[in-house]
Design a protein around this nucleic acid. Sequence first.
DNA 1: AAAGATGATATAACAGTGTTATGAGAAAAA
DNA 2: TTTTTCTCATAACACTGTTATATCATCTTT
Lengths: 218, 218
Amino acid sequence: MRKNTVIEKSGVTNYRAAQDLHQLELRKGILDDVSDLLMHEGTAALSMRRIAQLVGCSTTVLYTMFGNKQGLIDELYLRGFEMVRQTLEAVPRSGAPQNYIYALCYAYRNFALTHSTYYAIMFLKVMPEYTPSEANRQLGQKSFQLLVDAVQDCVTPDSITEDEAWEIARIIWATVHGHIGLELAGHFDYPGVSSQQMLERALQAIVEQLLSTSNRVK
Amino acid sequence: MRKNTVIEKSGVTNYRAAQDLHQLELRKGILDDVSDLLMHEGTAALSMRRIAQLVGCSTTVLYTMFGNKQGLIDELYLRGFEMVRQTLEAVPRSGAPQNYIYALCYAYRNFALTHSTYYAIMFLKVMPEYTPSEANRQLGQKSFQLLVDAVQDCVTPDSITEDEAWEIARIIWATVHGHIGLELAGHFDYPGVSSQQMLERALQAIVEQLLSTSNRVK
DNA sequence: AAAGATGATATAACAGTGTTATGAGAAAAA
DNA sequence: TTTTTCTCATAACACTGTTATATCATCTTT
């Protein structure tokens, strides 16, 4: 951190600000490189020395920029949730509101399967002693706002509070997450019904039961 | 592995067998120690040197006994599933068959929460480059036979094949697993409905929809 | 029984990890 | 200019999994 100087500065071109901006760009560039490394070579490739070599600097720079490895993984954690958010946002909103929920879930599953290394950082504890901060976890949850909205669109307006919608959304999330987890762990690799089909059955059951208006107590 | 000697032996007290038995006991003792270490200090404590020091031998012994660290983790993996099996077996079979399914699931969740380090080895990738062998995964699946039986007991006899029962059991498993995963990751830590209650809602939906006879197409 | 082969095991090394102390060089302030 | 401050590469420390070496006891063979 750059210490504040006693002498006041009021020029139009703020040198410090420009330098800090450059720092931000640099930080973003480094994270892009790390992200590529993660997606192409997996979590095992994410060593501080390897990253330093990749971006062409010493490990010291990384430690001054990110504190420690956890600080760096934290950024990937947030990036992962941001990617989830964008993934969900890209899902077209068409047809019945329930179908939109299904589409969101399938998009989420697709993200998890194609970016499994990211998913592993976010939900599997691939970095043994990394635990995201409470703040970052809450930030991550926001990625599911679209799902919450979709839940609310499924019922008659204002028939449930946002907290209740969040609760249902979390149940749906947990269902998808569970299927993905067992699928990634190889427990769904057997001849017969595909993982996708099993998820469909589960989701239909959950959504039917929790969101069909006939089943809702007013 | 002990090479077979050319000379035949046919004594009553088989020396080799006794020695191998002793080896097996030793192996079991070591695994008991490792298991304790895992439960009391977590996965991070499971280093070969630490284990060697704990049992009072050199690391070489561990490598000749288990091949490598993966071989040792493999044993813990299997132990974990065996613990799951015993946990499910301890659940009293009373009341409606659906309630028995619920009880199995809650017992499973309870196992995951109380033995979270074991659960992490089995389902989270806490050991980055450890992946259980296909054989061990299939062995692990057997721990859920009781759940499959419970599913079959819920429907009219022989109305579903065992494959179909397995499919439904896996869906239930995935649901519970998903809830546990998000709960362990801290995503269910918020004021309001408890994780247990959310799981109850999800399970009721799943079981109602997939197992109620009225919904089943014959 | 003596000599040789075989097996088990402790020590120490190798290559890797996250992290940090050291020191050198550049930039800023005086 | 001199002095202070800051940046950063090098090298070290304490770990990790794994293995080559060497020692020692045991077993086999002569």
